[in-house]
Every structure is written in C-alpha cells, then in structure tokens.
Amino acid sequence: MSQTLLISGPPGCGKTSWILNRLQNHRGPCGYLRLAGYPDEGLAQAPDGGIDLAYLQDQCPRLLDLTDLDQALAPRPEHLLALIELPQFQSPAESGLGGVDRRVIPQLEALHLRPDEHLHFGRDTALPRQDTLDFSSLQAWQRNLAGSVWDPASLSSFWFELVNGAYGDVYRAKALMNLPDGRAFFCNWMVSQEGSQFLPLQTIAPPDCRPERLSRLVVQGKDLDPGAIERTLADCLLSEALPHPSPAA
C-alpha cells in the first residue's frame, strides 16, 4: 500500500533530517516534494532553492522527484512512500488532515498528490520534539553558488563567522558547497542544535573543475548583513587555477 505524508514545521526544526531517515528506512520506492510555504506576517520563508531535494537525491539515488509532471501522470509504483515537506511557522488550527493549509491543496492536486496524513513539528507527538523558537521577525537571504568552488580553509572560517553572528543573528543556515577536490558538502546549522553538520555528498565531481550541480546558500535570521556576507564570499571562492571559467551564476 502506498502512503502520502505531508510534513510541516518551522525552519530549523529538523524536517529534512526526519524525512531522510524515513526514506532510508522504507524498502519500496520513495518520492519527495518540497513546497515553498507562504510568508506569514513579517516572516520570510527562505526559498530553499532545491538544496533539500539535491541532498536527498544524493543520499537516495532512486528518489522520485514528485514535482516532475511526467511522473505525476504516470501510474504510481506500488508501495510508494511520498513525502511532502512544507515550511510552516504557525501550528495548524485543527489536528490531522483538517489542519492542512488550504492554499497548498490545488498545487498538490495538480501533481496528483493527496496526503493520507499530516504531521506538524511541535504539534504531533509522532515527530521528535524540538525547541520551538520565537520567530517574531525573520529575514531570509540566499545566494546561488552554482559553478563556484570554495577554498576549504576559507569555508570553515566563513561558516564559523556566519553561525556565530558576525553577519547578524542567524537562526538557520544551510548550503550545498563545492570543494576543489570534487566533493560537495551539505552544510547545516540551526540555532536550536549544538554544532554544525557537514555531510559529504555521495556524488563526486571531477577534481579541479567547476561542478555544474546545484550549489546554494540559504540563511535565515535577524539583522542580516548581506553586503558583508557577499564581501566575505568573494574572498573565499576560488577564482583562478581552475581550468574552466565560471559560468554565469
């Protein structure tokens, strides 16, 4: 029997980690969709820019992309576990499927998706409990890093400064970053958890070239200083010594 699950919660609550865990423990085919979410008053939803999907696809190579219309129209494989991720700050008013944000329904219907169950972080006990943060006014900033390669030592300095508040109060930072040896890292930090995750992707690009895969940095927080972040990025990204010029990002 197939199952379609809608998972919602505020940024940094651990949705993606929980989803990865579910996908890896499911024996049959799996699909994934990340919805954009809606900016509630004063709170900017961080556009994720495909980071979660790219990371999950790297970890689960046969993961179906549920945004793919061809796949939506094709007959669904048996025992499909379809997981839909929805960033959502406020806890739903109603429990169960009744609490699903009405605005997502048309989008899901267009993709032939009908959740059997809705779980919200902070509401449903089936999900791990996380510290709930006060997101009274949240800014989001993101930067496309496609084709960029980091000086590894500079990346660790920059990340240290970023998550320790050198560029504003950061609640959440996540990124996919390319290194010169062809590896890429999923970098993940949230204020509610101690320390950063640096998880290598399975897929390795040829060394010393500009990888074409998705690479992006997303930051959420208060009083962010994007100009200062940009200046530091410019000093961290490798420019010369790579055979291929950087494609326009």
Binding site: D151, A153, S154, S156, S157, F158, T232, D235, C236, L238
Partner: peptide, 9 residues
Amino acid sequence: YPSQLAERR
C-alpha cells in the same frame, strides 16, 4: 596564511 580569506584580509 592558512586560507585565501585570511590572505585577502
């Protein structure tokens, strides 16, 4: 300098 960032600064 251990990093490009440190060197540029």
